[in-house]
Design a protein around this nucleic acid. Sequence first.
DNA 1: GAAGCACTTGACTACGCAGTCATCACGATG
DNA 2: CATCGTGATGACTGCGTAGTCAAGTGCTTC
Lengths: 334, 334
Amino acid sequence: MTDVARLAGVSQKTVSRVINNAPNVSAEVRDRVIAAVEALGYRRNSAARALVTQRTHVIGIVTPGTALYGPSAQLFGVERAAWQAGYSVVIVSTADSSGEELRRAIDRVVDHGVDGVVLAAPITAEGLASNVFRGVPTISVGDPVTGDFGCPAVIADQQSGGLQATEHMLSLGHHTVWHVAGPVSWYAANARIEGWREALHRAGAPVHGPLVGDWTARAGYQAGLELAERPDVTAVFAANDQMATGLMRAFKEKGRQIPEDVSIVGFDDAPDSGYLMVPLTTVRQDFTAITHRAVTELVHAIAGEEFNRGVTRIPVDLVIRASSGPAPTPTSVG
Amino acid sequence: MTDVARLAGVSQKTVSRVINNAPNVSAEVRDRVIAAVEALGYRRNSAARALVTQRTHVIGIVTPGTALYGPSAQLFGVERAAWQAGYSVVIVSTADSSGEELRRAIDRVVDHGVDGVVLAAPITAEGLASNVFRGVPTISVGDPVTGDFGCPAVIADQQSGGLQATEHMLSLGHHTVWHVAGPVSWYAANARIEGWREALHRAGAPVHGPLVGDWTARAGYQAGLELAERPDVTAVFAANDQMATGLMRAFKEKGRQIPEDVSIVGFDDAPDSGYLMVPLTTVRQDFTAITHRAVTELVHAIAGEEFNRGVTRIPVDLVIRASSGPAPTPTSVG
DNA sequence: GAAGCACTTGACTACGCAGTCATCACGATG
DNA sequence: CATCGTGATGACTGCGTAGTCAAGTGCTTC
């Protein structure tokens, strides 16, 4: 910057003003400075800028380090929204769902000097304890944690999704709906279980399980092999599309047709789900809306402005495709 | 740090020594400093450190901003490898494959002050021109670009993958193999085309197409509808698993059984591919190995050490599953 | 014509850290 | 006993930027 100033015949401070679009710089000086900047290929030093402004213009995202569709979509959504808001994004992935691992991840991200943090990995109050509130604004896009160590959250209405998926199949005449859940360390898994359970209760349908998987197609497949043993299983709600994929494979392997013999509903509406050999009925989460909203709130918090400190729920939509159909044998259902 | 020094009764410089594990600090002073650090909850300021050391310990990754499996896997692989090497990762996504967009992305990442860059988006010499060689070490994990504006690359042996996939189906007695390629702006798409073409040439098989998709299941589905019109199509190689998924759906919709009537082979070995209703034969890329190797080379380059300036090719493996089988009508094949 | 005002510009400084070099204490060596 | 070497420590400085405040310029106003 000093070099630029010398070439343009002005002070370093004036160059700074031009770079930052500060007011009160004459057009002629501005042009001279810009010319000098281009001649020298000058780029400002973000570290020096951060040092003096106390702002890095970077937000951190803590994600589970897997290529699952949901977390990936959140990650890219956050990146896009952050960029629109003038922020860059650093990623820190967690190896597991433990509080210790979460603390380590948050430590890393805070050490890096981010202005704010988006949590896209499963979190617990224990994991958040004493770290987040070092003054770094934080928002969750997955788990809502309230209470002393809680933080704001923008999440899909998981419970409503579970409810809708289950009611959809009940309304097709299924006696009951089985559930293959995600890991219990995830709020999304628990909330979907709650929605599923509530739908069954409302309809007076029997509650079995749920079976618990790890979000992977493999886990869905294994759960499916188990469920296929029982002839009375005619409807299964999987907590995500990957597990639903594995489920469908398992039922097919056991000679049960979808949707003629068994109806399957997933969750997420991953890009492939409409193009599987049996297009999957699923619950769509609007990841773009969630992440955009979360980043907007976070940026407000960073700026010290008003923001929503509670939990914001974004509606989900049931997308009906071919994998769910009428129950094979009509039974008395409410 | 000055506060810590005051509390510990030492100079700021000594605190710096303790923080950085520098030699020549007595055990007693070290303990006192560590106690003071913990008492004050001191965390070092990364911006100040970066300013004086000229090292941010951050690497940037330029990725296409989509939740496609390949780019996601590369992203997470880079993050994990970078962390092991003591680096954080900032993401910048590109909106399209244009050289202009690539330049913008690289600009952003360089502006951020990264020590090195990993390119996981499609690149061209034109897009790299004049940016990368501002002295920021760069490595590609997708496209190899050689020549004046080229950069080192660590990539899967895409061409060999295309060759293996095609030869596999030819060896099953298929008269020829059709291909649904990725966007031509991607090296991976072109190299897979080359491998496919080479296999056909070697076998003296007729070459049709290829059809070109955009990596999505939807594109695969549309290509499949087109191919299903032709009764002579018995084997299709899709340039990724998503498109293969869509292909299978389209053939099924048109009443063609897989693999009895049509064989399908994909590319990537995405986590779900083994659990589709017809498990997919595919070419596995070892993203972990690729990204680990790339980050290792990049870190060497950052440290000013010896590193491989050329293109490193990582072998791929054909994973044979149920979606590929013998040709329906035996024909004379070499 | 003097006073006042808005606008433009620059000198100086602090941000928090690590590098350089000087200083000091202590033990070893001749 | 004088000299030297080695390890431990601190004072000072610079990294590149933006904030603060003062100074200079030109124009308006009465």
